[in-house]
Design a protein around this nucleic acid. Sequence first.
DNA 1: ATTGTCAACTGACAAAAATCATCTTTTAAG
DNA 2: CTTAAAAGATGATTTTTGTCAGTTGACAAT
Lengths: 233, 233
Amino acid sequence: MEEHENSRCENCIIRQINSFKALKKEELKQMSDHKETRKVKKGEILFKEGERLSGVYCVRSGISKLSKLSDNGKDQIVKLAGKGEVLGQRSLITSEQTNLSATALEDMDVCYIPKNHIQESLMQNPVFTNTVLKRMASELKTADHTIVNMAQKSVRQRLARGLLYLGDSFGTDEDGFLYLQLSRSNLADIVGTATELLIRTLTKLKKEGAVSISGKRIKLEDKKLLYAIAEGI
Amino acid sequence: MEEHENSRCENCIIRQINSFKALKKEELKQMSDHKETRKVKKGEILFKEGERLSGVYCVRSGISKLSKLSDNGKDQIVKLAGKGEVLGQRSLITSEQTNLSATALEDMDVCYIPKNHIQESLMQNPVFTNTVLKRMASELKTADHTIVNMAQKSVRQRLARGLLYLGDSFGTDEDGFLYLQLSRSNLADIVGTATELLIRTLTKLKKEGAVSISGKRIKLEDKKLLYAIAEGI
DNA sequence: ATTGTCAACTGACAAAAATCATCTTTTAAG
DNA sequence: CTTAAAAGATGATTTTTGTCAGTTGACAAT
């Protein structure tokens, strides 16, 4: 079966934006020969919290949410992962079951890479290991920041910050609306509150002119105000 | 200047419980020749959020808090670090300023290790890098869990969990009281709430028989109850 | 056309948490 | 020992958040 050149890891543009850029020609070839491209429909689950993964997913396009179920039955979205992110890496490194579930928020294209290739490179390519380590350290910093926000900030503050984050991470469409259209329920799961309160808080931001809303579509009208809200009170 | 054998990294027992066990003889020797032992008094600050570190601290004894200031002026304790922990590693890996402050909660003995030795080993010793990576991945998992707890659980639940954590991490004294005696204010900064509410919540746990209290000293009387509270409502 | 489902929204109320004021106890300093 | 300062504790009040019940509107299935 002959593959088109573009579908080979060696030529994949995604590689420019993640740790895989530190891999050697030989490793990429190996990886490419054993990878498996896969389409994931919006709403589909890539993996569930508690599963053991036999590989990682490299996101080529589309956005997914990484979430964790709390004891009280509510979902908390810990992170949104788009193009270039590698899903499942953490649990592969520690050889544990995943602690998060991954669900597609849009149709996605992903590459599945069996774990042995990643693990070999982690053992034998120090540059790669270092790159992964740097990413992990950076994620840890973000996580610490999130902990403080969750513990110390109000729903209003967290929502303002969340909206800015959505803008920064995934940009806007031609009309200036946030590219990623989340349901109110998903937004609530990012902010860490109930859907009802999320809706009320969002409505208030709209009345204050910080955002405008058209159905699922949200536009950040006054980023400075949002920023001030996120910091202050 | 002649050093006692025990004060050399090669013989340090701490090495058994952190990433340094993956270092080679030669690296340890180098490290030992350039380390600097230091005593830190209770209340003293090892480093402040935003500083640039020129090395890491290896904790030989004593416990420190790693905290971050929120925009609203409140401190959030992100982690408690005791014997064997290496402080400042994350910011060293990403070559950034620290995102956390480290303060001694007890008198401490620490070793200061200049960064170049760590960085060299990270570049040249894949086993060491891998060990650090594993630790970092593990911390990230914990952090994700904390995010969910902060976002989804009540102060009561978080306090119950926090007390169990203190017991598990630092043990109890001969009378069964938690070894680490924190001020109510520090406890509040762990749980992520105001001191007043922390006191009230703690008092309630006492009335319910989950804990007993004698000044700063806290005894976990009914761990199962605490566990149930942490999970349920 | 009818039904059913689901997401978005609203009102009313209850519970949780923050805030402010005050008082007591403990601790540290002179 | 005395005194000042800090930590601990409690009451009263306000604000924030959660919960329950119900309405509306869009859309798909029949």
